[in-house]
């Protein structure tokens, strides 16, 4: 393993985060606060409780997931797309680094940033609603795994994208709907039976359900399925990236 290379990439990528640290913190704090105002106060006044948890508190895990998933994809896809766009990728390709080292460096940095944002949102949520976290370690594990797996996914998008529009396309067209329809703001049990079945094909349901379980012990689907979903997704992304570097797809001519 070329450890120095991993450290060098990670540091260089984190420098981008530090350069824009205020934007990185302020925008999720503001958007979370807005969600609380709209969903928590406006809708929450009509739905008082979901399975014994106040609506405001109920949506916190979903909100964190929403931000963390979007941020992970955005950070990681931009992180690798930018060198492709400005041409600095030549250096990665001509350096004695393996695909695994590149991925650990880039994805590690992207996941770190979204993990930071996830924790900041959690802190912001505490200011709005009284909350409890039943299984803090499981919560952190779920959060970290989500950051990692969606950063991997973002990395793939960044390599696939040929322009800035494509960079936005998948998050906008696929991920945001999946997260919104994945039970971020409601419990699956609140849906009519047909929709409940359809929803089970949405992989994000399993992530949000597992994450919410770590807060309140409530889950829409069995915990085992949630774990399987997130590990499966991570492995799938790793496999795709391995193939990309083997074939040089969209990075080497």
């Amino acid at each position: 393993m070329n450890w120095w290379a991993i450290v060098a990439i990670y540091r260089f990528e984190m420098a981008r985060t530090w350069r824009t640290i205020w934007q990185s913190i302020v925008s999720p704090v503001i958007s979370t606060s807005l969600y609380f105002v709209v969903f928590g106060a406006a809708i929450g006044s009509r739905i008082s409780e979901v399975e014994g948890v106040s609506y405001g508190a109920f949506i916190v895990p979903g909100l964190i997931m929403l931000s963390v998933i979007t941020q992970s994809i955005a950070n990681a896809s931009f992180g690798i797309y930018f060198p492709k766009f400005i041409g600095t990728i030549y250096e990665l390709l001509s350096a004695p680094v393996s695909f695994l080292e590149i991925v650990i460096g880039y994805v590690g940095a992207a996941a770190t940033k979204s993990l930071m944002i996830g924790i900041i949102i959690l802190g912001t949520a505490y200011l709005f609603v009284p909350m409890r976290i039943e299984y803090p370690l499981a919560m952190l594990a779920f959060l970290t795994l989500t950051c990692l797996s969606f950063s991997l996914f973002g990395f793939i998008i960044g390599i696939w994208a040929k322009n800035f529009e494509q960079l936005q396309l998948i998050p906008l067209l696929i991920i945001t709907p999946l997260v919104f329809l994945g039970g971020a703001f409601y419990s699956i049990s609140m849906l009519p039976p047909l929709w409940q079945t359809i929803t089970l094909f949405n992989p994000v349901v399993y992530l949000i359900s597992g994450f919410r379980w770590s807060f309140y012990g409530l889950a829409d689907v069995a915990l085992g399925w949630s774990l399987l979903a997130i590990f499966g997704f991570t492995l799938l992304c790793l496999g795709v990236i391995w193939w990309i570097f083997r074939s040089g797809w969209r990075i080497k001519s």
Binding site: N2, W3, W4, A5, V7, A8, I9, R11, F12, A15, R16, R19, F82, P83, I86, G87, T88, Y90, E91, L92, S94, A95, P96, V97
Partner: peptide
């Protein structure tokens, strides 16, 4: 390798850019 086209991360500082290269080479 000194490539034909100038390709450098525009927002990064010279010192960090050069350090990155050294690190990449292990």
């Amino acid at each position: 390798l000194v490539p034909q086209e100038i390709a450098l991360e525009p927002f990064e500082r010279v010192w960090n850019t050069v350090r990155l290269s050294r690190g990449l080479f292990g």
